[in-house]
Amino acid sequence: MLDQLISSLTDGLLLGFVYGVAAMGLTLIWGVMSVINLAHGPVIAMGMFGTYLLFTHLGVNPYLAMVPVAGAGLIAGLVIYVIAVHRVINAPHLSSLLATFAVNMIIIGVGTAVFSTSPQNINYSLGSVEVGFLTFPASRLVGAFGAILVTACLYLFLYFTRAGKAIRAVANNRMAAELMGIPSSRVLALSFGLGTMMAAVAGGLIATFFPFTVLSGGPYELKSFVICVLGGLGHPLGALVGGLMLGGLEGLIPTFMPVSWVPVVEFGLFVLVLLVRPSGLFGAK
């Protein structure tokens, strides 16, 4: 019993790292410009398909493929920002929600036309790893490692580079940043691009675990909402912690009740945290 508990907890936690990366993209965008990117799910799916295409058709190692996928994710984000978000950045929230949702529809629409909605998978195995009584696919371990790497890079970028500091300045006070000579629109576009880049990378990592379709981003988008709220909307590190919490819950809950109750607990917790501590479980009150 305990063995099983620990094993499913480990499973969940490893997955949680990758959830964290997906959510980090969302929370970064929210933190900088108070926009909830409803095209987040489709971008995750784009990451899945990008990795898949590079691997299946060009034979690129899926982990290596994530480098160009990240680049494409960045560019996609810049384009989305310029076309759909910039004009409504100061409008009421409904406008940016619907604008990004429109992008969601466009991506899903095109994606469905091109790939249909049949499931794909990346047929690449790293074998499995055994630690004591625990056995899990090595891809999970690599995924978790990748997630930590991405988080570390994001932090180094935000705290130690000029562009990163500009992002923090714009997030903190856009008008003041503009007064200091920081081109805030370009910084916003870059932040949006980084957010979608992380979504695309998360998608690539998830694609090495599970089969996926064009629509697979949706559930991860919803999970990202939950994670962001657990960790405090706008805090990248909070997203990683939130991701681990969600992964852990997903690992643990099925040992106590039917799997179908997982979303009830998740979303119940989500609403509860929003009500009681909208700044997240660890954020300042």
Binding site: K165, A166, R168, A169, N172, N173, A176, A177, I182
Partner: peptide, 14 residues
């Protein structure tokens, strides 16, 4: 209109 979440040094840097 300071960057309240950043340090004094970072504010000056900005």
């Amino acid at each position: 209109q300071l960057f309240t979440e950043m340090t004094i040094y970072e504010n000056l840097e900005m």
